[in-house]
C-alpha cells in the first residue's frame, strides 16, 4: 500500500536520485541558488573563468576539510586547524631557507610538522581519552606558542619555494589549476579509503559506536590516532598550498579556516556526532562556502557583515537539516 506506492515512485526515479542523501541534495540546490542569485548581480558569475577561479580558491579549503571530515566521521573534532595550517606553511617556508636539500624537502617537512601535531592530538584522544575538543584546543595553543617563539611574533621573512608556488598557482593541464587537480586526487583517495578499505569501514564503525567497534575486534585507538595524524597532515598541506598561493606564510593565516572547514563538512550532511556522511557532501559544502564568501566579497561587504552573514547562514542551514533527534 503506502509503502509500495512510495517504492513505486522512487523506483521510477533515476538511481543516483534515489540514493542521494537529502542533505547533499539540499547543499547542491543551495549552490545552484547562490549561482543564480550571483548571476542576477553580475553576468560574469556563470562564466567558466569565474567558476574555475572559485574551484581553485575552494581547493585549499577542500584539502583542509578532507582531514576535518575524517575526524568528524569518528565523532571527534579537530580545533587545531588554525595553527596546523600556519605551522605547515611556516615550517615549509623555513625549510626552504636551508640550501638545496631544504628546498627539496620543504613540502614534506611542512606536512610532517602537521602530522606531528595530529599525532599528539590522536594520542591524547585515543590513549589518554581526553575529549578531542579540549586536547586539540591545547595543541593549537602550543603550536601557536612554538611559532610565536620561532618567528619572534612577526610574519616570517622566508618565502615559498618554486615548487610550492607551482602547486598552488600553476596548471599542468592547460586551463585546470593545479590546486583543483590536487584536491581531486586527495578527494579520490579519501573516497577510496572510506568506501573500499577496512580502515574506512572502521572509521564509520567507531563513529557509530566505539564500544561495538572495539568488541568486534577493531583496534579503535590506532584508527583514531591515524585519523588525527591524517587530519593534521592535510591541514598542514593546505597551509603549504596557501603559502605557495601568497608566496609566503603569515601569523594568523589559519584562523580563517577553522569555522569554514567544520561548516563545510557539517553542511555537507556529515553528522557532527559521527558515523554518517559522504565525501560528495563535503565537496558540496566546500563549494557552497567558497561561493558564499566570494559573493559577499564581490558585493564589497565589509568584514563585520561577512562574519555575521556567515554565522547566520551556517546556523540557519544546520537548523534546516542538522538537528539532533528529540530526547524521548
Amino acid at each position: 500500500m503506502s509503502e509500495t506506492t512510495l517504492g513505486g515512485i522512487a523506483g521510477r526515479m533515476p538511481k543516483f536520485l534515489r540514493r542521494a542523501d537529502p542533505a547533499v541534495a539540499t547543499a547542491f540546490a543551495c549552490i545552484v541558488i547562490l549561482l543564480l542569485l550571483g548571476s542576477l548581480y553580475s553576468r560574469s558569475f556563470l562564466s567558466p573563468e569565474y567558476l574555475l577561479q572559485q574551484l581553485k580558491v575552494a581547493s585549499f579549503l577542500g584539502v583542509i576539510a578532507t582531514g576535518m571530515m575524517l575526524v568528524i566521521l569518528l565523532g571527534q573534532i579537530d580545533l587545531s586547524v588554525p595553527w596546523s595550517v600556519a605551522t605547515g606553511a611556516m615550517m615549509a617556508c623555513a625549510a626552504a631557507a636551508y640550501g638545496h636539500a631544504g628546498v627539496v624537502l620543504a613540502i614534506p617537512f611542512g606536512i610532517l610538522c602537521g602530522v606531528a601535531i595530529g599525532i599528539v592530538n590522536g594520542f591524547g584522544v585515543a590513549y589518554l581519552r581526553i575529549p578531542s575538543m579540549i586536547i586539540t584546543l591545547a595543541t593549537n595553543a602550543v603550536a601557536q606558542g612554538l611559532m610565536v617563539v620561532y618567528t619572534g611574533g612577526f610574519s616570517p621573512q622566508d618565502s615559498a619555494t618554486a615548487a610550492m608556488r607551482y602547486l598552488a598557482t600553476g596548471s599542468t593541464i592547460p586551463g585546470v589549476p593545479n590546486g583543483v587537480i590536487i584536491w581531486a586526487l586527495i578527494g579520490a583517495a579519501m573516497v577510496f579509503v572510506l568506501t573500499r578499505t577496512s580502515f574506512g569501514r572502521a572509521v564509520y564503525g567507531i563513529g557509530n559506536r566505539e564500544r561495538a567497534a572495539y568488541l568486534s575486534g577493531i583496534d579503535t585507538r590506532r584508527i583514531v590516532m591515524i585519523a588525527f595524524a591524517v587530519s593534521g597532515g592535510l591541514s598542514a598541506f593546505g597551509g603549504v598550498l596557501l603559502a605557495g598561493y601568497a608566496s609566503k606564510a603569515a601569523q594568523s593565516m589559519g584562523d580563517a579556516y577553522l569555522l569554514p572547514s567544520i561548516a563545510a563538512v557539517v553542511l555537507g550532511g556529515t553528522s557532527i556526532l559521527g558515523g554518517r556522511g559522504s565525501y560528495l557532501g563535503t565537496v558540496a559544502g566546500v563549494i557552497l562556502i567558497t561561493l558564499l564568501q566570494s559573493i559577499l566579497s564581490v558585493m564589497q561587504m565589509p568584514e563585520a557583515g561577512r562574519q555575521i552573514i556567515y554565522g547566520v547562514v551556517i546556523v540557519a542551514m544546520l537548523l534546516l537539516y542538522g538537528r539532533a533527534p528529540a530526547s524521548r
Binding site: I77, M133, L258, L259, I262, A263, V266, I272, L273, Q307, I308, Y310, G311, V312, I314, V315, L318, L319, G322, R323, A324, P325, A326
Partner: peptide, 15 residues
C-alpha cells in the same frame, strides 16, 4: 534548535 553546542557556538561566536 537541537544543534551541537560546539558548531552552534562557533557560528554564533562569528556573528
Amino acid at each position: 534548535g537541537r544543534l551541537q553546542p560546539i558548531v552552534a557556538t562557533i557560528a554564533t561566536g562569528a556573528v
